[in-house]
Structure formats: structure tokens, C-alpha cells
Nucleic acid binder design. Structure first.
Length: 497
DNA sequence: ATGTAC
């Protein structure tokens, strides 16, 4: 348990937990000063109560460890929703020199391009009321979910290769997308650096029958209603208004991404032991920039990114068909347009200004969202004047946020913000505290939220009570000017693995 | 997150 100590002067405030001391730099910014083998300081962006929660697992220790990675720039960052992960915290951002540094699979995460996309509709909550049960059943019946195989598309290895190389462009050619879907996705749904030949046969085999499937764990498809629009101008640019129905899809690259992460961790551990021995945790295994394995992993990771985008695209397009049947109207009539798709687990070569100089960095965002501000050339044209949409799922009982990239994101967080509410307890602990059936019943009776899942255990693991307060996470982002509040949504129907 | 374990 951490304890904040200090006098009334804010600049002297410190926070101590597990032998790690953080100094408050300003409100919501805490720093672990550089010492020993640390190459740079580390920063936690959090309110005091979120920092208390963050300090209860190994997050701070892991964050400190990441500052040992060669080429890490300015400081390692932990977002307000941070928690312990494999080697590198979930909610972590590490910007690492792409010429003299390294790339680390653990700093991307096992679920490569786990992310979310939001699709709009022109339906109102009043129009939907009474149809919740039919809608949730129909979504559950038509969108594959749960562990193991079974997707919207079954592919052979050649088709998997095409998906890995072309991303959503493949979906467009095969009738699972329309042109505008590409324009509203990060990188237009395709990473050109993808190299399918660097993805192992085993990973492709795992992926070929999972194309268009939610998976399990915290992945879900949720029908939501917009309850608040905080910024009218940006809300209008995004096409969001109160009482509107939207759909949020949260999933990743399934077994293919998981296998890819695993394959490269093992290869890197073997081939780059020298670097591994310099690091405080084997889970941070990294390939030196410029090495063959760094290039290979980058090509394979980008291919897995494309796979995840196709996955979300197929699920979204299938959702349009489900709405067509339930509401007896065409999806075009219901204006079911993609707002945006954001990646939560990714490393990308980006150019950032560091000490007045342009630098090429591998920006590792693991459980963190790109949040580019207005005017940035990588923000799609439709949103260039207001900033990139950032989509932050909370828990299935709390609601979700749409933010826009804030004007301080480039200088403070390498263009990043938080990605969700963040877990408060382990899955095992969650199952001891909650029973899936109770959670489901309570959500329906008290909040009119219709949940349908493959397994009651998953509902328990994802109970609203196992998550941090998403409102507080978002208020830290908003306060720091890295991601500004635009709208809030509340669940109506939720399907999950 | 994940053919819920190497």
C-alpha cells in the first residue's frame, strides 16, 4: 500500500510504495527519478487514488525495469489505467530509438493490435427499447466468440497470407467492407511494413479459422447509447449526439498474434542473450534495432496488426447484417458508419521531436492508445481539424468514452493516452468475488444492460467491480491535455466469450 | 490475451 507524504507545497509531495519513491512533478504527474541502471526516469500519470491502485501489484517495478531498455527516450510512461503485464505494464508507453535502441515484444503485448472500433447508427435508444433481447440473441448467434476456432471466414494459408499483407483492403475486395471503412481506420487498415513470410506456419494455422471472431477474456461487442456529449464542436465532427445508438467492438489478433509474440520472444531470448543479461527482467527480451530479428519481428507484428484489423472489420460488417434483420432496414439507411478504429497494443516507427530534434522511434504502446492532436498529418482527413478519435472502453456496467487527441499529447506522451479502465484484480480473484449469473441478472434488472456470454466465468472475470473507475482515468487524460473528453456512452447489449 | 501450461 502506497503512502503519500509531504507538506502542503505540491512540489514536495512524494509517494512511496514497495520501496519505490515517486515525486510529484505537477498534478497527475509522478516521477521515479533516474538512478542506478535506469537510463531515463519513469513517469506515472495518475490521480493519487489511481496511483494507490497502480502500486498494489508489480506495475511500478515493471515500469522502472523498462527504463533499462537501450534507446528508451525521455521517460517510460504509465497511464492512469496501468496494471501489471508480461514484463512491461499494461498501460505502458515506451518510445525507443529505432536506430540505436531496440524493439521488445513484451512491450507490445501478446495480443498484437488488440483494439477497439466504434460504429455509429442513426437509431435512438427509444427506437431500440424492447428489442434488446432479440438483438443480443441475434448478435450472439451471428458473431463467433469464445476460445478456440470458428470465425466468419475460414481461410487457407494463401488467404491468410493475403490478409496479413493487405489488411482491410482484402476485406474490401471480398465484400466485407466498403471504401469508407478504410478511411476511418488507423493507417487505413493496412500496415505496409507487414511481412507475412515472417509469421510462422504455426501462427497462421492458429489464425486461419479465427478470422472474424471475438475471442474471450475482456473482448466483447457492445451496443451502447450516447449519454453525454461534452464537446459540441468535436461531437458534431465525429457525428455523435445524445441518445444515439453506437456499437463498440473490442478484440485482437486471436491465436495468430499470441503465437507471433511467443515465437519472437523465444527467438530473441536465444539470439540476443547479451542484451537480455543487461535487463532486470527476462520478460523484457528485446532485439537490438537494425538486427535481423528486430526487422523480422517488426514485419511479423505488422502482419498480425493487419490480421486484427480484418478481424474487427468482419465483425463490424456482420453486425450491420444483424441490425438489418432485427430492424428490417438496410444498414445504409441506419447510417452504420465506422467512427474510428484504434489499436491498443502496438509498436510503430514514428517520428517525434525530442529536445528540438527529429527522431525515429519505435513507440511501444501496450494498453495505450495513439492520441494524435488536431493538425497531425496521420489523423484522417475527416478528423484532421479536431484531432484523432480515441475510444476508451470502461467495464460492461460503467460505460465508455470517446476522446480526441489532446494538444499536449505529442510533447507529454509521444502522442498517447490511456486505453480503458484497467483491471483492479486478477481473473482468479474476480471469480472468487463474483458469480457470473448474479452479475448478469443485476445488470439487466438494475441497469437494463443485456449481457450474453459463452461462459459464466467470463462474466465474473469481467464484472464491473473488477475494474478501476473509468471516469477517473479519463479525467486524468483530459486534465493533462493528452486526450480530451468528447462523449460518454452506456451499455445496452453486450456479447462476449 | 491464449488450443486458459512447458
Amino acid at each position: 500500500m502506497g503512502v503519500a507524504v509531504g507538506d502542503s507545497c505540491m512540489s514536495n509531495l512524494t509517494f512511496e510504495a514497495n520501496g519505490i519513491t515517486l515525486e510529484q512533478v505537477r498534478e497527475h504527474v509522478w516521477e521515479i527519478p533516474q538512478e542506478g541502471e535506469m537510463r531515463v526516469p519513469a513517469r506515472v500519470l495518475a490521480s493519487e487514488s489511481l496511483l494507490e491502485e497502480i502500486s498494489e501489484d508489480k506495475t511500478l517495478e515493471q515500469l522502472k525495469n523498462t527504463t533499462h531498455l537501450p534507446g528508451i527516450t525521455n521517460y517510460a510512461i504509465c497511464m492512469p489505467d496501468g496494471h501489471q503485464g508480461y514484463g512491461f505494464p499494461v498501460g505502458g508507453v515506451g518510445a525507443i530509438d529505432a536506430e540505436n535502441g531496440c524493439i521488445s515484444p513484451g512491450a507490445v503485448g501478446y495480443d498484437i493490435n488488440c483494439g477497439v472500433r466504434m460504429m455509429k447508427t442513426n437509431l435512438t435508444y427509444d427506437e431500440l427499447r424492447g428489442n434488446e433481447a432479440e438483438l443480443v440473441d441475434s448478435l450472439f448467434a451471428n458473431v463467433p466468440s469464445g476460445l478456440g476456432g470458428g470465425g466468419i471466414v475460414e481461410a487457407d494459408i494463401d488467404t491468410v497470407d493475403e490478409i496479413l499483407a493487405r489488411g482491410v483492403d482484402w476485406a474490401l475486395e471480398h465484400g466485407h467492407a466498403v471504401e469508407e471503412d478504410l478511411l476511418h481506420c488507423e493507417d487505413e487498415g493496412m500496415r505496409e511494413e507487414a511481412d507475412p513470410s515472417k509469421v510462422t506456419q504455426k501462427a497462421k494455422d492458429r489464425g486461419k479459422n479465427q478470422i472474424g471472431s471475438l475471442g474471450s477474456g475482456n473482448h466483447f461487442l457492445e451496443v451502447q447509447r450516447v449519454t453525454d456529449v461534452f464537446d459540441d464542436e468535436v461531437g458534431e465532427a465525429y457525428g455523435l449526439e445524445e441518445d444515439q445508438i453506437v456499437v463498440l467492438i473490442h478484440c485482437g489478433s486471436r491465436g495468430l498474434g499470441h503465437q507471433t509474440c511467443n515465437d519472437y520472444l523465444r527467438k530473441i531470448e536465444k539470439q540476443h542473450q547479451g542484451l537480455l543479461n543487461q535487463l532486470p527482467d527476462k520478460e523484457l527480451a528485446a532485439a537490438p534495432a537494425g538486427s535481423q530479428l528486430a526487422e523480422d519481428y517488426y514485419g511479423a507484428m505488422n502482419a498480425a496488426i493487419n490480421f486484427a484489423w480484418v478481424n474487427r472489420q468482419l465483425i463490424m460488417h456482420r453486425t450491420r447484417k444483424v441490425f438489418e434483420r432485427v430492424f428490417d432496414r438496410s444498414w445504409e439507411e441506419m447510417e452504420m458508419h465506422l467512427l474510428y478504429d484504434v489499436a491498443h497494443n502496438i509498436a510503430k516507427k514514428e517520428t517525434h521531436i525530442v529536445d528540438g530534434e527529429e527522431r525515429d522511434l519505435y513507440v511501444h504502446r501496450k494498453g495505450a492508445t495513439r492520441a494524435f492532436p488536431a493538425g497531425h498529418p496521420d489523423v484522417p482527413k475527416a478528423y484532421r481539424d479536431v484531432g484523432q478519435p480515441v475510444i476508451i472502453p470502461g467495464s460492461m456496467g460503467a460505460g465508455n468514452y470517446v476522446l480526441r487527441g489532446g494538444e499536449h499529447s505529442m510533447e507529454r506522451t509521444f502522442g498517447s493516452t490511456a486505453h480503458g479502465a484497467g483491471r483492479l484484480m486478477s481473473r482468479t480473484q474476480a471469480k472468487n468475488e463474483f458469480w457470473g449469473g448474479d452479475v448478469q441478472q443485476q445488470l439487466e434488472e438494475q441497469d437494463k444492460i443485456y449481457v450474453k456470454a459463452q461462459s459464466g466465468a467470463t462474466v465474473a472475470e469481467e464484472a464491473p467491480g473488477v475494474y478501476k473507475d473509468v471516469d477517473e482515468v479519463v479525467s486524468v487524460s483530459d486534465d493533462l491535455g493528452i486526450g480530451d473528453k468528447v462523449a460518454r456512452t452506456f451499455p445496452v447489449c453486450n456479447i462476449k466469450g
